[in-house]
Structure formats: C-alpha cells, structure tokens
Amino acid sequence: MSTPFYVSPQQAMADRAEYARKGIARGRSVVVLQYADGIVFVAENPSRALHKVSEIYDRIAFAAVGKYNEFENLRIGGVRYADLRGFTYDREDVTARGLANVYAQTLGTIFSSVGEKPYEVELIVAEVGSAPEDDQIYRLPHDGSIVDEHGAVAVGGNSDQIGSYLDQRHRDGMTLAEALALAVESLGRDTNGSDRQLTAEQLEVAVLDRTRPQQRKFKRILGRQLARLMETESASTAKTDEPSDEEE
C-alpha cells in the first residue's frame, strides 16, 4: 500500500493564496478615491456591457477585479442581501460594514474549502456619508479579510505601484475633476516606468455623490460628461504650468 501524498495545511493555504493573487493580478486595476462631495470609482474597462463598478443600495457601491463571473455572483448576492435587509428592517440598516462582513464570510468560507478553488477576486465596498469623515471604504482580498481604507485605494493589476502613487498625491477636499485626473494618471502608470494616456473610451467611471437630492447617490459618468471633466482638468493643469508674463 502506497503512502498518501501529504501537504501541510500551511503550504496548502499558501498555494491557494498564490493561485488567487496571480489570477487577480492579470486583471486591469480599479481605483477608488474620496473627493470633496463623495467617492469616485475609476476602472480601466473598455467594455460597456461588463461593469466592474455597480450600485448595491442607496449610498453603497461595489467595485471588483478578477474573474467576472465570480465577482458578478457576489454582486448579485450583495444586492439581494441589501434589498432583503432594507425591506425587513429599515433602509438605514443597510450599511457598507454589514455588506463587507457578508462578503468576508463568503470569501473566507470558499478560500478555506478544500473542495473548490478560491475565488480570483478582490472587492471594494464603499458607502458615502453625509460628510467626508463619515465615508466608509472597505477592501476585501481573496481570503475574506477586511481592510478599512481611507482616502484612496487600488485593487487588481499593478495595485501596489498605483496605490503608492495615490498615497503620495491624494489630498482631502479634491474636486471631482482633480480626483478623476489623479485616478487616470495612476492607472496609466506601467510597471516599466512608462506612462500611458488613457482616454474616456477606455474608462468606466462612477460616483457616490453626497450632494444629490435623490436617496440613491450612485451615478455613472459617461460620454460627453466624462470627456468634459477630463478636458477641464487638463486645461486647468496646462494653464497652471504656463509661465506668467513676469517670468523671464
């Protein structure tokens, strides 16, 4: 009788984590930033049918990278959870923290299960508050852990380099145009050090805007509005860079 092949639990979990990380890194990144009036989501995504950023509930949005079918199943489950909880109790009882806990339990169970492969996804759940200090942003890696983020966060692809770039340049009180410009700049940075110029057609952009009078704060920024925002900030930057008449 042959001896069964043995793999230590630590090695098995490390292999599963490496498998999931490699799958996530193959996807294009998503960036989430706080700005003066809310939270902006920017993804490099030329598809107009397969969204990486979606609304979950009144003040809550969801962003994801990795395998589309896996994070789409999670998104649908989150919408059902939010609708059921809001209907059973109160709309105010649906929070990003509660949704993040549900996702964490699901991802953690799948990651530790021997019978199925880990999900190759990384999620962001964000909720806009009545003031900037009330905003909530949670990042959920493949293993189901929860990371409370502030200011700016990047997931997928070259997220480490993009996140470092954002941390150095993001500041409180940015306008939407400034936050969008910073997000686009960070997404255009390649690992080889060169910069790509991303166009509006290559981007998926949405906001949670606390100033909207509607109960639902989620809004997609598309077409001419997106192009106009990008042009506005480009023109402002160019004007700032121009030397004044007094300079020699």
Rank of each mutant, 00 (worst) to 15 (best):
A183L: 04
P213M: 07
D195M: 15
Q161M: 13
A177E: 09
L203K: 03
H170V: 07
I162S: 04
T211M: 05
E204W: 15
R169W: 13
Q197A: 11
L180D: 05
Q161Y: 15
A179P: 09
V153M: 06
Q168Y: 14
D148P: 00
E204H: 09
L187Y: 14
Q168N: 08
L222N: 09
E185T: 03
D160E: 14
E204P: 00
V155A: 01
A183F: 14
V153L: 07
D209N: 14
L222H: 13
D209E: 12
A179Q: 03
R212F: 14
I146E: 06
E185M: 05
T211N: 06
R212S: 15
E201K: 06
G163T: 14
R196H: 05
T191V: 12
R189E: 12
E178L: 05
T175V: 06
L182D: 10
L208D: 05
D172T: 09
A152W: 10
S186I: 11
E149G: 02
Q202Y: 10
A181S: 13
R189Y: 12
E185V: 00
R169E: 15
Q197L: 11
A200I: 08
G163A: 04
G163K: 06
G157D: 12
D148A: 07
S159P: 00
L180N: 01
V155C: 03
Y165Q: 08
A206T: 02
T199L: 01
Q161V: 14
E149V: 14
D148Y: 12
R212D: 13
I146L: 04
A152Y: 12
S186V: 08
S145Q: 05
I146Y: 06
D172M: 08
Q197R: 13
A181P: 08
A154P: 00
N192R: 10
E178S: 03
G173I: 08
D167F: 15
S194H: 11
P213H: 11
A154I: 01
D195W: 15
I221S: 01
F218N: 11
H150L: 09
S145F: 12
V153K: 01
Q215G: 11
S186D: 01
G188H: 06
D209V: 04
A152S: 10
T191Y: 10
S186H: 00
R220P: 00
G163N: 09
